[in-house]
Design a protein around this nucleic acid. Sequence first.
DNA 1: CCTGATTATGTTTACGTAACCATTCTAGCA
DNA 2: TGCTAGAATGGTTACGTAAACATAATCAGG
Lengths: 359, 359
Amino acid sequence: MVTDATSAAAGVPRPVRSSRTRPGRRTSMADVARHAGVSSQTVSRVSNGDAAVVESTRRHVLAAMEELGYRPNSAARALKRGEFRTIGVILFTLSTTGNMRTLEAIANSAADEGYAVTLLPVAAPTQDDIRGAFTRLGELAVDAIIVIMEVHLLDTAKVSLPPHIQIVVADSDAGDRYSVVDTDQAGGARTAVRHLLELGHRSVWHLAGPAESFSAQRRADAWRATLEEAGREVPPVLHGDWSAESGYRAGLALAEEADCSAVFAANDQMALGLLRAFHEAGRRVPEDVSVVGFDDTPGSGSFFPPLTTVHQDFASVGRQCVEGVLRQIRNEEAERGTTLVPTRLVVRESTAAAAARRG
Amino acid sequence: MVTDATSAAAGVPRPVRSSRTRPGRRTSMADVARHAGVSSQTVSRVSNGDAAVVESTRRHVLAAMEELGYRPNSAARALKRGEFRTIGVILFTLSTTGNMRTLEAIANSAADEGYAVTLLPVAAPTQDDIRGAFTRLGELAVDAIIVIMEVHLLDTAKVSLPPHIQIVVADSDAGDRYSVVDTDQAGGARTAVRHLLELGHRSVWHLAGPAESFSAQRRADAWRATLEEAGREVPPVLHGDWSAESGYRAGLALAEEADCSAVFAANDQMALGLLRAFHEAGRRVPEDVSVVGFDDTPGSGSFFPPLTTVHQDFASVGRQCVEGVLRQIRNEEAERGTTLVPTRLVVRESTAAAAARRG
DNA sequence: CCTGATTATGTTTACGTAACCATTCTAGCA
DNA sequence: TGCTAGAATGGTTACGTAAACATAATCAGG
């Protein structure tokens, strides 16, 4: 029930302005200091929990802060301290499992260290876009940058990286020029292929990612190398674009290959498409064809059949990106080299022992 | 080979310091001004592309900037201007399709408007965590906040929202207290159920999301209402936790129900689990059972069979969040009310006309 | 009761930028 | 030629914070 028509309308919450504070401005340390009858330096000390402020004073200042609704101004703080406590992340898209999970891990690790994460998406990997992004990053309030993309795209864009900013590159090559954290693509691919060979398959086909992708290349290279080491025939490589749809198309073609009893797909989405194509073509998985994916995306355990796949530890990738970047900030020097994060083969029901040799 | 032990180690790229600049500091406008022989005010004008600076001066200043590697200090800029040009996004997890796609759209829209996006993840939706997140956001360098979570969680956490900061809440209820942008959950669910009824199914079962979720509740409510409006029997509702695994478990139970010919799953992941359970139980989809999902996640078009599902336009949700927040910043006043983003039914192969009435 | 060390608090200043106002210069016109 | 309007540029200052230094208060030991 409305009891008083003249009262200020049940309004949007607004900051309470003490009569001591200037209108139109957020309350500053000076306001709090005046209100509490101390110097602004003492307010600063309380605000940072830093120096020795006697308990009674501290409480008094805290009360004043509370009363005036004081919030530290991070712009002034950053200006004074010379650091933003923020890490910038530049990436093309969040739409891949890997980027998304890596970003999440980065954000969580950064938060643990008291750092915020600023996102800088680049709509499409065109040169102009990348350059624009980096120009903006240079002006942005960040102490460091983590790049989640492939380094050769940086090169083609002739990007001038802000020199004072430390960089870790996830999902890339070029560990000799930047500090790189990446999943052990080759190791994962090798494990997948070995698993299939150990099941008795004569050879393993490969549905690779797009040719431009270094991740795809490394997985394909390791697949080929593993087959060659084992003295097996290397079937022609198929290329998809990471999408389930492209996996489906490749699967329709593979279903025609009578001697194809095992496929290693470069990611789970394409493996999903493969599964559908095989179902539709009447090739049973795993009885007729074994399929292994890569990523271990959520849901891959509920594919039909549940997918054997290479688990990527994106959380670890993200965490190590943040650790690397903070280490570089603290030491004030850039690092080089690549940190490989190991993978793990998750065996489910899409792989089985090879059927008797067929004709 | 190390050729000269006294040389500065083959080093990390470092900013070139002109002899005119003070060591240990990034070049400031004053440095550029000195180097170019103009006032720092003119440098400021060039930097902002703002005022009338004569072309020759402008080029001269730009050259000086280039030479000294000048980058504007965004902390000082923000302090002076009183705005950060940054939007904070708070969310629990990126691990759901919806959050991720919404975030991506927010980041893109914000970038278009010249705003950066700062991420503030909250590890688990406990009260302490939420409160911590908001305290940090209050001090954070943001002009506005977008909350991607359900409002009742804010309430239980007794969060005090920074009063000067504008808020748009995605994925929630409580449009009467905040400005909310959300998918038209009810409309989507209604469309899904109607689609199944129009195919001749006597009724539609529902695999709902977790009971705590408002999205799940609204989808379930609309499902029930649509059945009741059509005068159909309302089967008991099943609950999953959004995961494919929970869908699988529910599917095993549903496969036992002889009169279940159509299921509406509250998201695609659970629908994926349903499909696997039905396959394993020998119930053909769509011949024996029709299945509809919700989300239209990438890959759902390659499920086996391709999934009929309700497409959510996350890009639009994200865009409208940013538009709303910027409108509030510019008008300096909070808004209320809910903006519903329509859905679209994507009919694929997991739904078909009901078989002849069974026993 | 004084001295010197220690602790608590205050004062001054600089961080880099941009708004505001002042000054100089140019060109058009009487 | 002198005058004025307007354009281009410069000088000064404040934004809010925290470092560096200065001062005041307390206390132990002689």
